[in-house]
Amino acid sequence: MPHLVLNGDLIASRAYGAGEAARLLADVVHEANGRFAGALAAPLRVVQGDAFQGVVRAGSVLRVVFFVQARLVVRSNGRLKSRFGMGFGAIDQSLGGASDPSLLTGPAFVSATAALEAARKEKRQLMLQGPDPRLTAAANGAFGLVEFVWNRWSPEVWRRAQRYDELEAVKPLAAELGVSYQAVHKQLHQRGVLAVREALVGLEKLLEREGKP
């Protein structure tokens, strides 16, 4: 099963307060490790206070990314976000029972580091580096459109988008909120939540296929 190395670091953590940002990141990483335990070959691990790394099943990596970004935005009231760099490639060690990604090596880690550095340099939030330049270019172009949409979301839209991603349907979200299906669907559509989720699900399928022999 194909995996991606996922690197991330916080944007503007000093302005938020380095210590508070580090504590919030640690909490969000802990939440993500619990929610996506079955998709993590090596759990997300915080390094240097405001950065993290893990090895994620390719078919779930964008849901992990979305969850982490949503929780950071919601819990910081829109003041904190993360950059993400994803890397395809070989991993030198066996992933069976891996608990610390910092002890693993291989081309996938080099690619993830390069992707995160490109995101930092280009002021992007999500970038991929892999062996197929066509897929890399297509994915990074699509990620740019996703970022354009979600940069316009308020923390409340992020909260609803995350819950929609968890429930995978509008009807139970409307029932949970106590409002009409039509009202919730209209908001999700107008804010681009439905389009973003469809794009990320489709991209995950492409990433999953890319790593298969």
Results as ranks from 00 to 15, higher is better:
Pro2Lys: 09
Val5Asn: 10
Leu10Trp: 06
Leu10Phe: 07
Ala12Pro: 00
Ala12Glu: 14
Ser13Gln: 07
Ala15Trp: 03
Ala15Pro: 02
Tyr16Thr: 03
Gly17Gln: 08
Ala18Val: 12
Gly19Cys: 02
Gly19Ile: 03
Glu20Gly: 03
Glu20Gln: 13
Glu20Arg: 13
Ala21Thr: 08
Ala21Tyr: 09
Ala22Ser: 15
Ala26Asn: 13
His30Met: 13
His30Lys: 15
Glu31Asp: 15
Asn33Asp: 10
Asn33Trp: 10
Ala37Gln: 12
Ala37Cys: 04
Ala39His: 07
Leu40His: 02
Ala41Pro: 04
Ala42Thr: 05
Pro43Thr: 00
Pro43Ser: 04
Pro43Glu: 03
Pro43Lys: 01
Val46Asn: 06
Gly49Asn: 04
Gly49Met: 06
Asp50Glu: 08
Asp50Tyr: 07
Ala51Gly: 04
Gly54Thr: 01
Val55Glu: 04
Val56Asp: 04
Val56Met: 04
Ala58Tyr: 01
Gly59Met: 03
Gly59Ser: 10
Ser60Lys: 12
Arg63Trp: 14
Val68Tyr: 09
Gln69Trp: 03
Gln69Leu: 09
Ala70Trp: 06
Ala70Ile: 06
Arg71Val: 07
Leu72Glu: 11
Arg79Ala: 13
Arg79Phe: 02
Lys81Glu: 15
Arg83Glu: 02
Phe84Asp: 02
Phe88Asp: 08
Gly89Gln: 05
Ala90Gly: 09
Asp92Pro: 06
Gln93Pro: 06
Gln93Glu: 15
Ser94Phe: 07
Gly97Asn: 10
Ser99Pro: 08
Ser99Leu: 15
Asp100Phe: 12
Ser102Gly: 12
Leu103Arg: 15
Thr105Asp: 12
Thr105Lys: 13
Phe109Trp: 03
Ser111Ala: 15
Ser111Ile: 02
Ala115Arg: 10
Ala115Phe: 05
Ala118Asn: 01
Arg120Gln: 07
Arg120Val: 00
Lys123Val: 04
Leu126Glu: 05
Leu128Asp: 01
Gln129Arg: 15
Gly130Cys: 11
Gly130Phe: 09
Arg134Trp: 14
Arg134Ser: 13
Ala137Thr: 15
Ala138Lys: 10
Asn140Lys: 09
Gly141Phe: 12
Ala142His: 07
Ala142Arg: 14
Phe143Val: 08
Leu145Lys: 08
Val146Lys: 04
Glu147Val: 06
Phe148Gly: 12
Trp150Gln: 10
Trp150Ile: 15
Asn151Val: 01
Asn151Ala: 07
Asn151Ser: 11
Asn151Asp: 14
Arg152Ser: 10
Trp153Met: 06
Glu156Tyr: 00
Trp158Met: 00
Arg159Lys: 08
Arg160Ala: 03
Arg160Pro: 00
Arg160Glu: 11
Gln162Glu: 11
Gln162Tyr: 12
Arg163Ala: 06
Arg163Trp: 00
Arg163Asp: 01
Glu166Tyr: 09
Glu166Ile: 13
Ala169Pro: 06
Ala169Met: 07
Val170Asp: 00
Pro172Asp: 03
Ala175Met: 03
Glu176Gln: 11
Leu177Gly: 04
Val179Phe: 12
Ser180Gly: 14
Tyr181Trp: 10
Ala183Ser: 15
Ala183Ile: 04
Lys186Asn: 07
His189Cys: 01
Gln190Leu: 09
Gln190Val: 07
Arg191Phe: 08
Gly192Ala: 05
Val193Met: 06
Val193Phe: 01
Val193Pro: 09
Arg197Lys: 14
Arg197Asp: 07
Glu198Gln: 14
Leu200Phe: 05
Leu200Val: 03
Gly202Lys: 10
Glu204Gln: 13
Glu208Arg: 08
Glu208Ala: 13
Arg209Thr: 05
Glu210Val: 01
Gly211Ser: 10
